[in-house]
Design a binder for these strands. Structure first.
Length: 471
DNA sequence: CACGGAACTC
DNA sequence: GAGTTCCGTG
């Protein structure tokens, strides 16, 4: 048969980021890494194609964040068939598989646009994005929502400030709209929702782009895109899970989430909350530097990093205006118990491919493609069903979850090496990943009493108490 | 084209 | 579990 069945077909042996700004974790290139399955998963494959320039004519990012268009359905199907050794694969079949992702919330269809789908990064984010997760954590527990300050009784100004500092470019929390929204519309059991639209990488609105929206940062695009904190919404990391080192017991998320695939990028960055973390937890792991090199997952020295840095919306920043918004957000379900704070690392996948040559052009079309990870729980709060593209509110689950520890452990390693903060990432760094630094350092200076760590502990206690009561 | 049920495979 | 294949429906 003509099936190569070579998983490497599209997968470079070396995980290293193939292009600046696009930090696909190693595992992203390894089918075997696909969570829950030995074989490459379709969404994974889609991301692969999406990140290859050669396939730009076949499939490309377009529209909102995470949205992609399958320009040449037959070719995509053919490639998929090749990969899966299914010579009779066609778009009809492939699309059926994609439709199965709707329920999984990995993808959703962009209505009205043919062959256009959208990855539900939010879920990814949720799972992987610590910060968001924090919403559930003690940090945000209680009704803390980052309400623009209006409400959010529990959210002290300090906390809010801290959060905001993480997302400097996000709408000021001072205003009514901020990271969290008290779901006027849908105040569910989940409580307030984190405003996805507050996170550019989660939102849509951006015009068409060849590269993943997130890659279209405000800063220089050519040189690698530097995402502050290394966060790239389109990073597969979000979806990926395998590289991670082990999880702490009790954690909600698969270990894969932890090891940060993004390590190379995110891990090295200073965590915005690092200052807030207790010394012990703040330290980081060591994997940072190694980063991309091997791709091995890293356990860095034993210190598992739980929290992957939040993707900094720096690029997003501009975001909203120029990019769009849209994404949905993920919510983690697993309500069971929310494990104690696991770190949530988050990652996104999506690389864009910059391109180089023209892909095989067989037909033409416009489509989009999403990414997500099945293992991840991508939740599109906006509408559980499937489509809503824009507004997705992030549901913050009740807090129990992270109560325990805040996972904010970051790996501290050499962040010092990181470039100075304020400068826009734009500057080209020697290595795309190396330049990862927050656009603006989060100046968190919370009073000790208010420090997150303290707050976390307190929250944790509260949570525990509640649990006991519950039981 | 898009959706989703159902049976089936790996 | 994650598709694959087939198919009816809109």
């Amino acid at each position: 048969m003509d099936c190569n069945c070579v998983s490497d077909l599209l997968i470079p042996p070396v995980p290293a980021l193939w292009t600046p700004g696009i930090a696909f974790p190693d595992w992203a290139y390894k089918p075997e890494s696909s969570p829950g399955s030995r074989q490459i998963q379709l969404w994974h494959f889609i991301l692969e194609l999406l990140q290859k320039e050669e396939y730009n004519a076949v499939i490309a990012w377009q529209g909102d964040y995470g949205e992609f268009v399958i320009k040449d359905p037959d070719e995509v199907a053919r490639q998929w068939g090749l990969r899966k050794c299914k010579p009779h694969m066609n778009y009809d079949k492939l699309s059926r598989a994609l439709r199965y992702y709707y329920n999984k919330r990995i993808l959703h269809k962009t209505k009205g646009k043919r062959f256009t789908y959208k990855f539900n990064f939010s879920k990814v984010v949720l799972v992987n994005y610590p910060i968001l997760d924090m919403a559930n954590s003690p940090f945000f527990l209680a009704q803390n929502h980052f309400n623009g300050g209006s409400t959010a009784p529990d959210c002290t100004p300090e906390v809010r400030r801290a959060i905001q500092s993480l997302f400097p470019r996000l709408p000021d929390s001072g205003r009514g709209t901020s990271l969290f929204d008290r779901g006027t519309a849908a105040p569910g059991p989940d409580g307030d929702k984190l405003r996805l639209d507050a996170f550019p990488f989660l939102s849509t609105g951006a015009p068409c782009y060849t590269k993943p929206p997130s890659l279209l940062g405000p800063y220089p695009r050519n040189p690698p895109f530097d995402y502050p904190w290394g966060f790239n919404p389109y990073l597969p990391g979000a979806f990926s899970l395998n590289n991670c080192p082990k999880l702490p017991p009790g954690s909600l998320y698969p270990s894969q989430f932890y090891p940060n695939p993004l390590q190379s990028s995110l891990s090295q960055l200073p965590h915005p909350f690092s200052s807030l973390l207790p010394p012990g937890e703040a330290g980081g792991g060591e994997r940072g530097a190694a980063g991309q090199t091997g791709g091995t997952n890293g356990t860095a020295g034993g210190q598992p990093v739980r929290l992957c840095l939040p993707p900094y919306p720096g690029s997003l920043l501009m975001g909203r205006t120029d990019i769009g918004n849209g994404a949905s957000l993920a919510e983690r379900e697993r309500g069971e118990a929310n494990p104690p704070g696991t770190g949530l690392s988050f990652g996104l996948a999506a690389g864009t491919g910059t391109g180089r040559q023209s892909p095989t052009e067989r037909r033409g079309g416009v489509k989009q493609d999403p990414e997500s990870d099945s293992d991840l729980e991508i939740t599109d709060l906006s509408d559980s069903s499937s489509d809503n593209e824009n507004e997705h509110d992030f549901n913050i689950r009740k807090a129990s979850s992270l109560a325990s520890r805040s996972q904010i452990v970051l790996d501290g390693k050499k962040r010092s090496a990181l470039p100075p903060v304020s400068s826009p990432p734009a500057t080209a760094a020697p290595h795309p990943l190396k330049s990862l630094m927050p656009v603006s350092p989060p100046p968190l200076s919370l009073p000790l009493s208010l420090s997150p760590s303290v707050a976390l502990h307190e929250k944790h206690r509260e949570t525990e108490t509640l649990k006991m009561i519950h039981s």
